[in-house]
Every structure is written in structure tokens, then in C-alpha cells.
């Protein structure tokens, strides 16, 4: 997956967050599981965005992380407040915008 594919994943995640009618936690679960869980940070994410992406990923699921507790997104979201979930959704929006800006600047 190239960087523009990462950007597309983020855009699709944002699409799920804004278009679906479920509670924000449920939308986050679908957005993360269906889109962001398929991102390979080492290969797909531009270095300038890697730190922010890793923080978002860790907040949503640390199952694949060597320093994590093995908790998947459903469990992490279950333990999260609505405010924390909304904040994470906003961070995904912001990261998507930054990724798009990078793509636009490079063409």
C-alpha cells in the first residue's frame, strides 16, 4: 500500500464516521476494523504522520503491538467514554486532512 492508499483508507474511515447513524463508539469500531486495521504503519504511513497514526492506533487497538496489552478495538472502545471516543474521531479527521494536504502538495 502506497501513501496515497493510506490516504484513501483514512478518507474511507472518515466517511464511515460521518455517514453512519450508530453511536460514535460503534462508528469508530467499524472505521478502525474495516479500514485502519489494514494499514501497515512501517510500509504505508509517511514518516511525518507516523507518530500521530501510532497514537490513534494504540488508543483503538494494541493487539498487534509488542508493547500493548492485547486488547482489540471492541474492548478498548467499550472501556472508553463518549468524550474520549469523540476526541479520537476528531483526531482521525485531522490526520486525514494532513494526509490529503501532503498528497496535494506533492503533485
Amino acid at each position: 500500500m502506497a501513501h496515497d492508499a493510506f490516504c484513501q483508507r483514512l478518507q474511507r474511515a472518515v466517511g464511515i464516521l460521518v455517514s453512519e447513524k450508530d453511536r460514535v463508539k460503534e462508528r469508530l469500531l467499524v472505521a478502525y476494523a474495516s479500514q485502519l486495521s489494514n494499514v501497515d504503519p512501517a510500509r504505508d504511513v509517511p514518516e511525518a504522520l507516523l507518530g500521530e497514526f501510532d497514537e490513534i492506533r494504540y488508543a483503538l487497538s494494541d493487539a498487534g503491538m509488542p508493547y500493548g496489552y492485547g486488547e482489540h478495538a471492541a474492548r478498548k472502545l467499550n472501556n472508553m467514554t463518549e468524550d474520549e471516543a469523540s476526541q479520537l474521531a476528531r483526531r482521525i479527521f485531522a490526520l486525514s486532512l494532513r494526509a490529503q494536504e501532503r498528497i496535494s502538495a506533492s503533485v
Binding site: L29, S37, N38, S61, A73
Partner: peptide, 8 residues
């Protein structure tokens, strides 16, 4: 498997 794993 990766996607469903996240749904616990």
C-alpha cells in the same frame, strides 16, 4: 481475520 479480530 484481522478485521473480525478487532470486533472481539
Amino acid at each position: 481475520q484481522r478485521m473480525l479480530g478487532e470486533t472481539n
